[in-house]
Design a binder for these strands. Structure first.
Lengths: 210, 210
DNA sequence: CCGACGAGTTAGTCACCGTTAACCACTCGC
DNA sequence: GCGAGTGGTTAACGGTGACTAACTCGTCGG
């Protein structure tokens, strides 16, 4: 077989399978889709999948570990770049937000799986995913607290978690009610997140310095 | 049997089952829990459940229809009360927010199921739940647009959806990272939601009138 | 040419799971 | 005290679903 680049339109069989599996898992849940369906989605049937993966679990594991790594690595890269460029906290935070929005809009299925099917992993994989998730959250908590020093650790942590909930809910509004075009949606999401985080701190009083 | 009030500590068998089923479904997914487990959770075993429910599907249906009705009815009541009292838009919106926060904090399992297992319902029930959800969203969209007239319909709708995502993510942070006490958490969530919605409109410019 | 190997196929196994059947115990109005 | 209903029980059935076995077919380096 001619080994093709991941970036081209022609995906390798493995990549096809992962993509379709992600879509199906997100639609109907891990337990809700059978291996025959996954096979059918890529034009082969049922047990043919076992030439590429050890089992159904292995597919889910690879998907979840993959998205967690990409999220964390993306966040780390952006954080480091902002620091290296000596950018102010606001810019570092904005960059993190934009990165997450990209994932939420471009990899909907994976974002959905990521916080929905984690418990179906076997202990070992789950631990790895959780570790990556924790590190990613840490990135955000640090960025948020740098931006809003008045926040307690706990306030920042809860705010970050719920803001992820906000961003990760984007995939669900794909169906009935249409979204605006990508750019408009991204800008709106960015404003919503910034607004939420800006409001996390002040328990009272109308005016609040940044 | 002595018919007991729902409000007392002693639950009827049906209510016990629904409660445990909700917990288990939220933890491991509808397809991930067997009827034997649900039975075991209430001290009876397996098929004994069929004295109380027509089947596993019926339990999920009753749970989802129930939470949808309670959400919508609660929202409608609050909206009407605010209108009857001639309260300003801000107060009506605040009341909706508080109502949803109560559900998110008190009925975690149901909130989780509500946006996660909807597709496992049979057509008829799913339609009913979706209708209630739509009506509930409408309540919010109206309240938000009354508060921020500058928002387009679409902006308001997307904002409301994602804010639900924010609030409904609360159950997930129960595990490792602890939450503050209920009152503090509720206040923080309220600020986050208000902050997000306040930021939905202005695409640019630092100062923005309410 | 040809053996090896990669990538499928179909048929079959085995476990599990939702549901039903058949049976039993307890309570309670008559 | 007794028939009926209510709320359980265990055993069995049928379907499904993940995975394995056994086999086939094309391609390609030597």
């Amino acid at each position: 077989m001619v080994r093709m680049s991941t970036r081209t339109a022609a995906l390798t069989r493995r990549e096809q399978i992962l993509r379709e599996a992600a879509r199906l898992f997100a639609e109907r849940g891990f337990h809700g889709v059978g291996v025959d369906e996954i096979g059918a989605a890529v034009g082969i049937s049922g047990p043919g999948l076992y030439r590429h993966f050890a089992g159904k679990d292995a597919m889910l594991a690879e998907l979840l570990v993959g998205i967690s790594e990409r999220l964390y690595e993306g966040g780390r890269r952006r954080t480091e770049e902002a620091a290296a460029a000596g950018l102010p906290p606001a810019d570092a935070l904005d960059s993190l937000i934009d990165g997450h929005i990209d994932f939420a809009l471009d990899d909907r299925a994976l974002i959905t799986l990521h916080d929905r099917e984690l418990d179906r992993l076997k202990e070992e994989d789950r631990k790895q995913v959780r570790k990556l998730q924790r590190q990613y959250v840490e990135l955000w908590v640090d960025a948020v607290r740098a931006m809003y020093p008045g926040l307690t650790e706990l306030e920042a942590r809860v705010s970050v978690h719920t803001v992820f909930g906000l961003l990760n809910s984007t995939p669900h509004l794909s169906g009935p009610s249409a979204m605006p075009d990508r750019e408009t949606t991204a800008a709106l999401l960015h404003r919503l997140v910034r607004g939420a985080l800006a409001a996390a701190g002040p328990a009272a009083g109308p005016g609040q310095s940044v």
